[in-house]
Design a protein around this nucleic acid. Sequence first.
DNA 1: TTGAAAGCGTTACCAC
DNA 2: GTGGTAACGCTTTCAA
Lengths: 326, 326
Amino acid sequence: MATIKDVALAAKVSVATVSRVLNETGYVHEDTRARVLKAMEELNYHPNEVARSLYKRESRLIGLLLPDITNPFFPQLARGVEDEIHRLGFRLIFGNSDENLEKELDYMQTFKQNHVVGVISATNYPDAPNYQDLSMPIVFLDRTGENAPAVFADSREGGRIAAAEMIKRNAKRITLIKGPAHLQTARDRFNGALDVLSGADIDFHVMKTETFSFPEAQKRAAELFGTYPETDGVIASNDIVATAVLHEALKRKIKVPDELQIIGFDDIPQSELLFPSLSTIRQPAYEMGKEAAKLLLRLMKNEYIEQSAVQMPVAFIERQTTRKAE
Amino acid sequence: MATIKDVALAAKVSVATVSRVLNETGYVHEDTRARVLKAMEELNYHPNEVARSLYKRESRLIGLLLPDITNPFFPQLARGVEDEIHRLGFRLIFGNSDENLEKELDYMQTFKQNHVVGVISATNYPDAPNYQDLSMPIVFLDRTGENAPAVFADSREGGRIAAAEMIKRNAKRITLIKGPAHLQTARDRFNGALDVLSGADIDFHVMKTETFSFPEAQKRAAELFGTYPETDGVIASNDIVATAVLHEALKRKIKVPDELQIIGFDDIPQSELLFPSLSTIRQPAYEMGKEAAKLLLRLMKNEYIEQSAVQMPVAFIERQTTRKAE
DNA sequence: TTGAAAGCGTTACCAC
DNA sequence: GTGGTAACGCTTTCAA
C-alpha cells in the first residue's frame, strides 16, 4: 500500500501538503492540489487508518455489542445500526456477549484498545462498572441504564395493547406468559398486560418461562394445555414462545384462532411465515438500530441532547392467530 | 488510559523492558518482571492496539463480509466464525455487502486500512479484482473461487439427496424449484436434484425463482398450484421458498405430507418451528463458520495446506413435511 | 539484562 | 502556500 510519503514524492511536495489536501485543512494552491490528487489516484493511495487513529486517538470504528446474533431479533438491530453509520464512513467492530458480563468487559476492552469513537450495547448490566467513566459515548439499545442514552421500545404499552386486543377479541380465560425475570423489557411487557388484565372483569392465569429458547417454550406450552386446557387466549412473552404455543395447539388439534387466540411480541421476520401467521406486538427493530446510531452520532458531535432516552412506539400487528375484533 | 510510558515510569524501568515483559520476548530479570507486572496491574494498563498495529502492520482484527445478516442463514455463519477466533484474541470488523460489488470493495478497503490480519467473505464475486493480490489471507465462505481457500457445503449432493428422498417417499409428480441463477450454490442444488430426477422414471416439472425473498416465493407458490395442481412433491431451492410453498398449500387445504410433500434446503432455525415442521437438507452453517475461521487461522500462520477447499457434508433432516419412507 | 533510539504513517504546529 | 518536524504508543534493533 502506498503511503503519504510516496504520494508526496510523486507529487513533488511535502507530506504536510499531502495531508492538507487529504483533510481539506489549511491553504493549498489549486495546481498543487491537482498534482497531489493525481498522484493519489495513480498510486491508488488510501490513508492508513491505523496511523490516523494513533495520532488522533480516535478511529472510524464503532463498537456494537449484542447478546446473540443468532437470535432473530438482533440481526435487525445490527442492520439498522450499520445502515445508518455506513454512509458517514463508520464501520463496526462487532461481538456477541451471550449476556455474559465477562465477555462484555472483554469487548469493551477491545473497543477502547482500538480507539472506537462510540459504542452501542444491548446489555443487561448497563450500570456495571464496564460502562462507567468511558472516554467515548455509549448508547444502550433495547435496554436502559439510569439516565443513560438509550433506545428501546415502549414494552409496557405493548403489554397493555396485547391484553386490550385480547379482551376486545372476546377471550375469556387468558393465559399471560411472563418472560425471563432478568430482562427489563420482559418485565415491562408483563406488567403492561397485567395493568389491563387486572382491571378487567376476566379470568386469567400467569405462567412463566425462564428463557426465550424454543425447547423450553415447547415444554412449558405442553404443560400449559395440560394444566389449563380451558384457556382461550395466550399472551406470550415473545414470538418464539408464541410459536411454541401455536405449535403445541396445532398438535393438539385446537383450532386457532377459533378456540384459541395467540398474541406474540417482537414481530420477528418468521412470525409472518407461520401458518396461521402470528398476530403480535411489533417492535420496530430496524428503526431502533437506526435510531441508536443516530443518537450515538449526535453524542459524538457533543450536541446538546434534550432527551437521550428515546422510546419507540409499538403496534399491534393483526394476523391470523387472533379473530376479528367484535 | 495508561500508556507503556506510565508503566515504565512506575516500575522504574525503560519502555523497552515493559515491552519485553508484555510480549514475553527477550530476557528480563524475574524481579524486574514482577515490578513491571505490578505496575501494569496498578495502572490497569492495557496496550494500545492501534500503536501496536501501526508498528507491526497487523492488528488483531479479522474482516467478515456477509451478504445480509438479516437473512437467517448468515447469523449462524457469523457466530461460528466469532466463536472460533474469539479465544485466540481476534475480533471482527463486520459488514453487510448486499451482494453489491461496490460495497464489498468498500469494505475490503476498510479492512486493509485497518490492518486486518485476514478476511472471510461470502461473496458472489470471488474472482473480482477486489480479491486479488491481497496482502492478507482470505477465505470464501458458502462460496468458491478458482482454487482459492473456501468452505462450502456439498450442495450438489444435497440436491441429489433431496430428490432421492422424495422418490423414496413415493412422490410421483415432482416440482423442482430452481433458485437464483447467479448463486453457484443454488445451481448446484438444482443440478444435483436433476441428476437423480432425470435418471428416474418419474414426472417432474421445473419452476424458477429469481430471489430467495418470501414475498416473491409466495407469488410463485400460488402460481405453482394454479398451473400444476397435481404436483405431490416439491423440492424447494431453500427453506424460505419451502416455507412459502407450505404456506400456500395449507391455505388451499392441501394435506401435508399426505397429499403433498415438501423438502427445503439449509435448515435455518425456524424450519423446525413451522407446523408441520419442515423436512430439509441441512447445511451445517455454524460449523462452516468455524471451519472457515480455522482455515483462515492456519493460512495466517503460513501453514502448508494440502486441501484449501473444504467441502462440508449435508444431511437430510426428516421432519413432518415428508412421509415415512416405504 | 537493560536502555536509547529509530521507525511504523499520520497530523498539526511553527517557520519561512 | 509550503515544508520541516514533533508527537501519537508501541516494538525492535543495537550497544552497553
